[in-house]
């Protein structure tokens, strides 16, 4: 099956939730990939929507870029609501 393309599969489990990566399937074309993904990843009612994407089409961040990419957001605590202390009288905000 070397000639069958590898597709990554994303399943949305309920309306309103994001599609989540669940694994991959082999298929000759996209419609076969959808069907194979349906058989493999939604046998137990797991999904309401499926995406299949050729694995080759995905660009991933490299692990050695983890620090420059993600560490800078570590200390930006003012992006989180808990940074802003308010007097108790204000109540829930």
């Amino acid at each position: 099956m070397s000639d069958w393309t590898l597709f990554e599969v994303f399943v949305r489990s309920k309306h309103g939730l994001n599609h989540k990566h669940v694994g991959s399937v082999h298929a000759a074309d996209a419609s076969m990939a959808l069907e194979n993904a349906r058989e493999l990843y939604t046998r137990r009612n797991e999904g309401v929507s499926l995406w299949v994407v050729p694995s080759a089409a995905i660009t991933a961040s490299a692990p050695d870029e983890k620090e420059p990419l993600f560490d800078p957001s570590n200390d930006k605590i003012y992006r989180h609501a808990s940074f802003y202390e308010l007097p108790a009288e204000v109540g829930h905000m």
Partner: peptide, 11 residues
Amino acid sequence: PALEEELALMN
């Protein structure tokens, strides 16, 4: 003829 088809035929 393919593992994927095993699943599909049985389904």
